[in-house]
């Protein structure tokens, strides 16, 4: 299935999966520290906000490019 996706859809889905891997596998524990404080907040909070921002941005790009499909609708 994934093999047949258009290139931009493959890239989009791969980046989304990568972001979820960073946020929700034990990799998140690498950022589980208070120092350094960035923008006045502990590093763990900052790290989560950065990846949330990236993923939300990818979802917006997904909307803009029709989620990479060549997409229609009574």
């Amino acid at each position: 299935m994934f093999k047949r996706y258009p290139k931009k859809k493959k890239i989009l889905y791969s980046l989304i999966i990568l972001c979820f891997i960073v946020l929700e596998t034990p990799l998140i524990l690498l950022a589980n520290t208070t120092e350094p404080f960035v923008l006045g907040m502990p590093f763990f909070l900052f790290w989560n906000l950065v990846w949330w921002f990236v993923l939300t941005g990818l979802f917006f790009i997904g909307y803009m490019i029709n989620w990479g499909s060549a997409e229609a609708d009574s």
Partner: peptide, 19 residues
């Protein structure tokens, strides 16, 4: 503590599943 921060990701997962 910060465990509820995972809500940032679960909202995104929910949104993706809704699509």
């Amino acid at each position: 503590g910060p465990v509820y921060l995972t809500a940032l990701a679960w909202n995104l997962l929910f949104g993706f599943m809704y699509y």
